[in-house]
C-alpha cells in the first residue's frame, strides 16, 4: 500500500468498478450461455446488435479498468525497485489500453459494417 498520493481515488475506483461490474458480468454469462448457435454469422449478429455492442464495449472498458487497478496493486506489492516498478506499470497500462482500443474497434467494425 504505497500509493499514498491518489491512493484514495485508486481504492474508490476499484470498488466502484467492482460494483458496476456485477450486473455486467451476470448479463454476459447469461447471454453467452443462451447463445445456442455460435457460428460466424450468429456471433456477428449478436455482437453487432446495437444494445449488445454498447453493453459489450462497456463491459470491456469496465473489466480492463478494474483489472488495471488490481494489477497495479499487485505490481506495487511485489516489485520494490522504483525504476522497474515504474517501467512495468507504464508498459502494462499501454498494453491494456491497446487491447481495449482493439476490442472496441472490433465491436464497432461488426456493428457499423452491417
Amino acid at each position: 500500500m504505497e500509493y499514498i498520493k491518489g491512493g484514495k481515488h485508486h481504492w474508490l475506483m476499484q470498488r466502484i468498478t467492482a460494483i458496476v461490474l456485477v450486473p455486467f458480468i451476470l448479463w454476459f454469462v447469461i447471454s453467452v450461455v443462451s447463445l445456442t448457435k455460435m457460428d460466424y454469422a450468429s456471433a456477428r449478429d449478436w455482437i453487432g446488435s446495437t444494445s449488445v455492442a454498447i453493453t459489450l464495449i462497456s463491459l470491456i472498458i469496465l473489466s480492463f479498468y478494474h483489472a488495471q487497478l488490481g494489477l497495479q496493486v499487485i505490481v506495487e506489492d511485489y516489485v520494490h525497485t522504483k525504476s522497474a516498478r515504474l517501467a512495468i506499470l507504464v508498459l502494462m497500462k499501454c498494453a491494456l489500453i491497446f487491447v481495449v482500443i482493439s476490442a472496441i474497434f472490433a465491436v464497432l467494425k461488426i456493428a457499423l459494417g452491417r
Binding site: 460466424y40 470491456i60 488490481g70 499487485i74
Partner: peptide, 28 residues
C-alpha cells in the same frame, strides 16, 4: 488475487473472440 489475474487472461480470451469475429470467417 489469483483469480483476478486469471480473469485478465479470460478477458483477453473474450477480446480475441470478438476480434476474430471482426476479422473474418476463417479466423473465427
Amino acid at each position: 488475487r489469483a483469480t483476478g489475474v486469471a480473469l485478465v487472461a479470460g478477458a483477453l480470451l473474450l477480446v480475441w473472440w470478438v476480434i476474430a469475429a471482426a476479422v473474418g470467417p476463417e479466423v473465427f
